[in-house]
Nucleic acid binder design. Structure first.
Ligand SMILES: [Mn+2]
Ligand SMILES: [Mn+2]
Ligand SMILES: [Mn+2]
Ligand SMILES: [Mn+2]
Lengths: 225, 225
DNA sequence: TAAATATTTTAGGCAAATCTAAATTATTTA
DNA sequence: TAAATAATTTAGATTTGCCTAAAATATTTA
């Protein structure tokens, strides 16, 4: 039943991620994400449709089939486990791992990924705070909110980042913030939407709206990582 | 200068391995190893020639260029480091790792393989006893001889296996022989070329000519693994 | 709702990697 | 050495994945 090329897998994963955020996914959306052209996407949609991983009707739209979603979750699982490996075992920063995981996620061995999972201690979240699906595609849902939406006086811990850029990591490192760091909101300034926060490592300091938007937090203490 | 597809890399590696054993490598040899047809090989030889990794003259023959050999050694390095990782960290048997390493060897990141090497403690030999090239393509040469060529009374340690089959591993496991095991030749029988040997774990026992042919030994104690 | 605009699909073509069948060249053998 | 045989290459197709330009359809806007 399965015999998908790396390219087909990348399309499936891209469509999956787009479906998570946007309600409808367009041909152009996929083309933009994959740096390709709409015509190429249409070609692929037809192939994925015949391969049963996609429901597609021309000019009407498309969405992953149940089977396609399973495939996508499997790729996401591999991607995030490899990212975890790279950061935890090979000492990469989380801004460096995405491109490498983009290749590693296509290694086909089923038993490899199960042993890797085991070797890593069955982590539930990747270095960016994103949940790692288990072998059945199930993943832990953390009730996350954006830092800008946290009320004054509340404390929560950083659970995910909204960007994987080196620039963000540099800033977070400088401010001693990482995934797991406890943050308390002290004050919000309406002029520039900057906010004053407090962490265990540092007394009160100010962060910009841009930075706050890139941070997601959970009220409960994080289960792992 | 470099921009080789996975397929091109596989051809280069195959030609490299064939050159190690046979003096001349033919189009048919390559076709046989890669489970493809001679015509396909010719197509590829022409492409590798224009890509400067191969010296090729039609109907005359071909061999890897210096550059091609460097590429080959880099792939071999990756292949063997990943095999080492799979056996030492993920508890695979050495009969299970080849196919997986066949995929992993094509992951492109240079820094990944250097960090993996470091993480593994810079091993010099893979799980089959084959030397791992360093980042410059240099590898340790072990003066190996086949077990059948060892004189009676001599002691040496197993340094490599001539086959990666599950069947061989099963037999070796049963006889308590692994890479590193010390073997002393007690007797040789000319009738069936079987031989009586001794190991630290077992007193004298007999092994077949087939098994002896699949074992390589070094007189000096092994430097690693 | 009709025209303008945006999106999507088709048509036709290209490069990589493969194949089969036929032609060419090299090697053996009688 | 000439014929037979073997090895290699070429010719011509196919599949995957991608492209541009043009056509078809959907959506927006006046
Ligand atoms: Mn990918
Ligand atoms: Mn991630
Ligand atoms: Mn390979
Ligand atoms: Mn090996």
């Amino acid at each position: 039943m399965e015999n998908l090329s790396t390219t087909e897998e990348n399309y499936i994963k891209t469509i999956y991620h787009l479906q998570q955020t946007d309600t409808t996914v367009s041909t152009n959306d996929v083309a933009a994400k994959l740096n390709t052209k709409a015509a190429s996407v249409t070609d692929m949609l037809k192939r994925l449709n015949t391969k049963q991983v996609l429901n597609y009707e021309k000019y009407k739209g498309f969405s992953l089939s149940n089977q396609g979603e399973k495939v996508a979750l499997d790729i996401v699982r591999k991607h995030r486990l490899w990212e975890y490996f790279l950061v935890e075992k090979l000492a990469f920063g989380w801004d460096e791992v995405h491109a490498i995981a983009e290749e590693l996620e296509h290694i086909t061995s089923k038993v490899l990924i199960e042993r890797l999972d085991n070797f890593l201690g069955n982590p539930k979240f990747d270095p960016h705070g994103d949940p790692i699906p288990d072998s059945n595609g199930k993943m832990q849902t953390q009730p996350q909110i954006n830092l800008v939406d946290m009320p004054i006086g509340e404390t929560a811990s950083v659970s995910a980042v909204g960007s994987q850029s080196t620039e963000l990591l540099e800033l977070l490192t400088h401010k001693n913030i990482a995934i797991g760091t406890q943050i308390t909101i002290k004050k919000k300034f309406s002029f520039d939407h900057s906010m004053e926060i407090e962490t265990p490592a540092n007394s009160s300091f100010t962060i910009s709206r841009e930075l706050a938007l890139a941070l997601f937090v959970t009220i409960k203490t994080p289960s792992l990582l």
